[in-house]
Simulated scan of single mutants.
Amino acid sequence: MIKALFFDIDGTLVSFKTHQVPQSAIEAITRAKEKGIKIYISTGRPFPLINNIDGIKHLVDGYITANGAYCFIGDEIISCSPIPEEDVRTVIRLADEKDFACMVVGEKDLAMYRNNACADRIFRQMLNVRHLQTDVPIEPVLRQRILQLTPVIPEDEEERLMPLLQGCESSRWYPDFADITAKNVNKGNGLLAIAAHQGIKAEETMALGDGGNDMSIIKQAGIGVAMGNANEALKAVADYVTEPVDEDGVYHALKRWVFKSEM
């Protein structure tokens, strides 16, 4: 019996074409909520950049944000896992040396360091984060605990960077950037933290995702669902592959696994 649903946002709940949650997904999640199932978001986005789930926001019980670095339910923090300060300094230094943009996510604020055209295209256009400010000073953010670093670099540059960061790991769901968090911080462990807090067994959960940063949660959930538009590596480890986000994938997955006894 499924007691909790965990949804990635971009490419899972939200279409890259419309930047909205499909109506079929809204209706299916509403129906699941009415059955008493808990609804959780599991995203690489920091909370201030979650601007595209208005259709279901009132149904959400809690959040896994910044790829698991910051998990909360209401005003209660379930887990908060900062990156070691030395590793933060290393990434900032390399951004200066190699001239790449990097989003720096603190506990309270975030800043886009060395913003450029590529970063602007990704965050403002592809992800539709129109309110993202690019002139926020980095120094006040660096005085906070840093939860995630998102350098806008290709995969080969990420492979050279990560051995320099002893306390970090990375994930990638889009070719142009990587998400860096502290070691052992990922969506899968976020699911375990929230499930344990709520008295829910991992086998009583279902998670849906489409990207490389969803690998851990798809493996950890009782039922792991890959969207039809997911990458092939994620599909290979999923228990089920549903239709793409733009073809009512969330609806079909919930129909198959949550509402099957009602069919």
Rank of each mutant, 00 (worst) to 15 (best):
D75K: 15
S81G: 00
P82W: 01
P82I: 01
E85S: 09
V88I: 02
R89M: 03
T90V: 07
I92M: 10
L94V: 00
A95C: 06
A95I: 02
A95W: 03
A95E: 01
D96N: 15
E97H: 08
K98G: 02
D99N: 14
D99F: 03
A101R: 10
C102T: 03
M103I: 08
E107F: 02
E107Q: 12
K108D: 03
K108L: 00
K108F: 00
Y113N: 08
N115H: 12
D120W: 06
R121F: 13
I122Q: 04
R124Y: 02
M126K: 15
L127N: 05
L127F: 12
H131A: 14
H131T: 10
L132W: 02
T134I: 08
V136I: 12
P137S: 13
P137D: 11
I138Q: 04
I138V: 12
P140M: 04
V141H: 07
L142A: 10
Q144L: 09
R145C: 11
R145M: 13
L147S: 05
L147R: 06
L147F: 02
Q148A: 11
Q148N: 13
Q148E: 14
L149A: 10
L149F: 02
T150Y: 00
T150H: 04
T150V: 13
V152R: 03
D156Y: 15
E157K: 15
E158F: 00
R160P: 04
Q166H: 14
Q166T: 06
G167H: 08
G167W: 03
W173L: 02
P175Q: 05
D176C: 03
F177C: 14
D179C: 13
T181P: 15
K183Q: 13
N184S: 09
V185Y: 07
V185D: 03
K187M: 09
K187E: 10
G190I: 02
G190M: 11
L191S: 12
A193K: 12
I194T: 01
G199Q: 04
I200A: 05
K201A: 15
K201Y: 07
